[in-house]
């Protein structure tokens, strides 16, 4: 059973279909760009390390 308070909170005074998508899309976008940026950094770090060790291998 959901409490009355939670129901009124989720209802947002009848504006639920505007308020919640706004928060949803904002949080989703922020998380998405953060994760995307971190993953691309990690990928480039790996690529750079691979290049460096390859060079060391070449020289040896």
């Amino acid at each position: 059973m959901m409490s009355m308070d939670l129901m009124t909170f989720l209802d947002m005074g009848g504006y639920a279909r505007f308020v919640w998508p706004a928060y949803g899309v904002s949080l989703f976008s922020l998380l998405a760009i953060l994760i995307f940026s971190l993953r691309s950094l990690k990928a480039r770090e790996r690529e750079f390390e691979a290049l460096k060790s390859q060079r060391r291998g070449d020289r040896a």
Binding site: L41, E45, F48, R55
Partner: peptide, 24 residues
Amino acid sequence: MFYVTVLVIRVRSELLAAKIRNAR
């Protein structure tokens, strides 16, 4: 603050991309 955080991550990434290009 979120912008500053993501900016540092992205600048690091761009720097590495430039280094990788140069190394190649």
